[in-house]
Design a protein around this nucleic acid. Structure first.
Lengths: 212, 212
DNA sequence: GTGCCATGAGGTCATATGACTGCCATTTCT
DNA sequence: AGAAATGGCAGTCATATGACCTCATGGCAC
């Protein structure tokens, strides 16, 4: 039997979902909360297997509540269920630790199936939200790869060109009247900006990106 | 009619999928590739609506091929279809720009449905792989928040403590016999490591994390 | 009183240096 | 010959500095 806590500020929605869950032999709605704060209290009181959590609620929103519940119990299984699937909601919910994200547009059967998945420890994200998640994922990866690739500065550019001519650090240092350590440092920073690990690859990428 | 290009090195798999697609009235398999390089050539030749791409192939793997096809045509709709759903494959495929990721364990009906989704511009990731994607997403978010929080170094630590005592940059500079600019620089780095934007917040976070 | 400018403080960025680590090859010791 | 010491080169990290930007504030001209 899957014990469920439902948090939603709309009475009608709670009643509707309650009805749906009654149709399922293996599910029992053990408590209902009308806002995030209540959800946290009731979670501690009932230790339900799965929490169905709305986002837009007074007092404390569902994402904040989810975060706090998971701080209390890292194994909490929270399924966020909301009307709108904007990027912000999907991202924040899943990063808060929710095991699933569904739009209220789904059918009762899909909801039940998602609850079972989450209860088994699997993830449940509806098809539309996956697209949103993917977009967010790629954006994040992009940011991660170029945290500060404001392109190379003058010195780095200059030194990359000399590297491409197979000059050693010492040679470059003499040419630019700088300490060898300084050259090494510029190269180190340059490698990071180009996301590579040695001068050969840097030259390669430099040519690809038309920096040379 | 959805025109499909299939890339898989196993003849048997190609034949099987070919059979499955023949059952669908709205799909036509227009070309078959046995490796990534062929897939690229055939993509350019036939401009299919959707590409079904295996990962493990000789000559050039499917992920690399997907990446190159998308470089040629940003609207290419590629659905990666593979035997194993390890984190590495899911992450690399989706970051390469694939619109979907499915395990070969799925049913023919699910494959057709996924192909239609992808053709409509939606994303299609099977339930198991979503869990993997989510894990990777959270890891990445974690990395992003602490890119290099190897904790503060001695100087930064020292200066944070002085900031907490409401010393100005000039005062700190005199106390440590350093230039004021140097202090500003340390503080700037320190703010980045603590993910905040001014000294007040830095002290706040410093206390929270027990650095003070 | 109002508006403008000078000033100073905080913060960011490019620049510069040397200590230290790790790898590789060459030489030296056994 | 094989193992061990040595030296050089690449790369990373903490350290240090000053030029420049922004913003708030206070005084001055009107």
């Amino acid at each position: 039997m899957i014990n469920i806590l439902l948090a939603d500020d709309q009475q009608l929605m709670r009643d509707g979902i309650s009805m749906l869950l009654e149709l399922e032999e293996d599910m029992a709605l053990v408590a209902e909360a009308a806002n995030g704060r209540e959800a946290i209290e009731l979670y501690q009181q009932y230790s339900p297997d799965v929490v169905l959590m709305d986002i837009e609620m007074p007092t404390m929103d569902g994402i904040e509540a989810a975060k706090r519940i998971i701080e209390l119990d890292a194994n909490a299984k929270i399924l966020v269920l909301t009307t709108f699937g904007q990027e912000d909601y999907v991202r924040r919910s899943l990063l808060a630790g929710a095991r699933g994200f569904l739009l209220k547009a789904i059918s009762g059967a899909d909801l039940s199936s998602a609850i079972r998945k989450v209860q088994r420890g699997e993830a449940a994200v509806d098809a539309q939200s996956i697209g949103v998640l993917l977009q967010s994922y790629r954006d994040m990866a992009g940011t991660l790869q170029n945290p500060n690739s404001t392109l190379l500065n003058r010195r780095e550019q200059e030194i990359l060109e000399l590297i491409a001519q197979h000059k050693s650090n010492r040679e470059i240092a003499v040419m630019l009247s700088l300490a060898e350590g300084t050259i090494k440092n510029y190269i180190s920073q340059l490698l990071e900006k180009l996301q590579v690990h040695d001068r050969k690859q840097a030259v390669q990428i430099g040519r690809d990106k038309g920096l040379l």
